[in-house]
């Protein structure tokens, strides 16, 4: 059973009071839940949040399912999101994704067996001048080649 930390509960209370409507706090609170729930939002945590925020579960679930930055499935410790939009594709983003998937032996959007990495293809991340690029957890890594991307990820995996 998922529960937010005390700090998290305070955060939720603060966010509820921060905006003009309680509903506006759904996105920040979901971010918080995702952070405390190993990078994804589980159905139980939605029920929990619904009780905590006193908002219908359907509203929270609608928001959760609408936005792509909330993960509905467990993700690896490293969530590698490779931009697969037009500028990046022109400069080899798809080849890069294929290379990474092959190297780390995962399927796109799926978590690796050891739970360490998820590679997903995402839409434009607003860094087209430095294509191809990827986002690992919160940070951007730009001007990649398959080799350099592999090196970055390997470095981070070993650092863990």
């Amino acid at each position: 059973m998922f529960k937010l930390s005390d700090e998290g509960i305070n955060f939720v209370k603060k966010e509820l009071a921060r905006y003009e409507t309680k509903r506006s706090a759904i996105i920040p609170c979901l971010y918080r839940v995702q952070k405390e729930n190993d990078g994804w939002v589980s159905p139980e945590s939605v029920s929990y949040l619904s009780e905590l925020m006193e908002l219908p579960e359907a509203w929270i679930n609608e928001v959760l399912n609408f936005y792509t930055m909330f993960n509905k499935k467990p993700v690896g410790k490293l969530h590698v999101q490779v931009c697969n939009n037009i500028s990046c594709c022109m400069l080899g983003a798809r080849e890069l994704t294929d290379h990474l998937c092959k190297t780390f032996n995962v399927k796109p959007e799926e978590i690796s067996e050891d739970g360490k990495i998820t590679i997903s293809k995402v839409e434009c991340l607003g860094s087209c001048d430095t294509a191809p690029m990827m986002q690992i957890n919160d940070d951007y890594h730009e001007n990649l080649t398959p080799g350099s991307a592999e090196k970055i990820i390997k470095g981070m995996l070993n650092g863990n």
Binding site: S47, N61, E62
Partner: peptide, 15 residues
């Protein structure tokens, strides 16, 4: 609610 978006949208109740 209507969950998900685009042509993947599904109507339903939570869980």
């Amino acid at each position: 609610g209507i969950f998900n978006r685009g042509d993947r949208s599904e109507v339903g109740t939570f869980e």
